[in-house]
């Protein structure tokens, strides 16, 4: 119960911080917009197959950029202060929940903008948004944890990419397959197997995060 309370407080803190420094969120939004326009102007006409891949690549890069700052935006002494107040589980969980929300918002926005400029080929809305939802959670868990690791190192921006991209590949491959199904690019009867795979990966990653994060934060 105490952890739950802490999570709520920390979530409020995250949102408040985001609200006060509006540059971070507006920067990410502009990033999405400009990427979509770059993609659109270079492709002109986007085939459903390319649409599917490009959409997830845009989401991938936007997510890395949005989450990379999770652990570096506040200086180390203030982080020490948080850690002395709250449970490490509450800290990582509040970050993951906050980042999931942020990514969900971000991917919906990317979808709307991308659909506006490049057309909307999605045929099966339920499966597509299920993929979007599960993907946001998976991305959020992985990137939040890796950003906690890379924040400890010296060149964190590069590390963030090289540490997280190989780990994210199983998730993004499953997502692309799922949404290809939703776009009717392929016929797969085993959609639930893919969703189960995604859920299982998310579950493994979140369990590892819970076990390992307490070792990570203390300096």
């Amino acid at each position: 119960m105490i952890v739950l309370k802490e999570i709520i407080y920390l979530l409020r803190k995250e949102i408040l911080l985001e609200w006060r420094q509006k540059y971070a969120i507006s920067g990410i939004l502009l990033y999405v917009l400009s990427t979509v326009f770059v993609v659109y102007t270079s492709f002109k006409k986007v085939e459903p197959n390319a649409w599917n891949t490009l959409f997830w690549i845009i989401i991938l890069f936007a997510s890395v950029n949005a989450i990379a700052k999770s652990f570096v935006q506040e200086n180390s002494s203030r982080q020490l202060y948080y850690y002395s107040l709250a449970n490490p589980t509450a800290i990582i969980l509040s970050k993951i929940i906050y980042n999931s929300g942020l990514l969900l918002f971000l991917s919906f926005l990317s979808f709307i903008v991308f659909a506006l400029v490049a057309g909307n080929p999605v045929k099966d809305n339920f499966h597509f948004f299920a993929a979007l939802f599960l993907g946001s959670i998976g991305f959020s868990i992985t990137f939040t944890f890796i950003s906690a690791i890379s924040a400890k190192a010296n060149n964190s921006a590069t590390l963030m990419a090289i540490l997280s991209f190989p780990i994210i590949i199983p998730i993004i491959l499953t997502l692309i397959k799922l949404s290809a199904n939703a776009l009717r690019l392929m016929q797969d009867t085993a959609v639930w197997k893919d969703i189960a795979t995604l859920l299982a990966i998310d579950l493994i990653l979140i369990t590892m995060t819970f076990i390992l994060f307490p070792f990570l934060w203390k300096d």
Partner: peptide, 10 residues
């Protein structure tokens, strides 16, 4: 440890 856990589904 984290990478190995991610490797299992891989």
């Amino acid at each position: 440890i984290f990478a190995f856990a991610a490797l299992i589904p891989l």
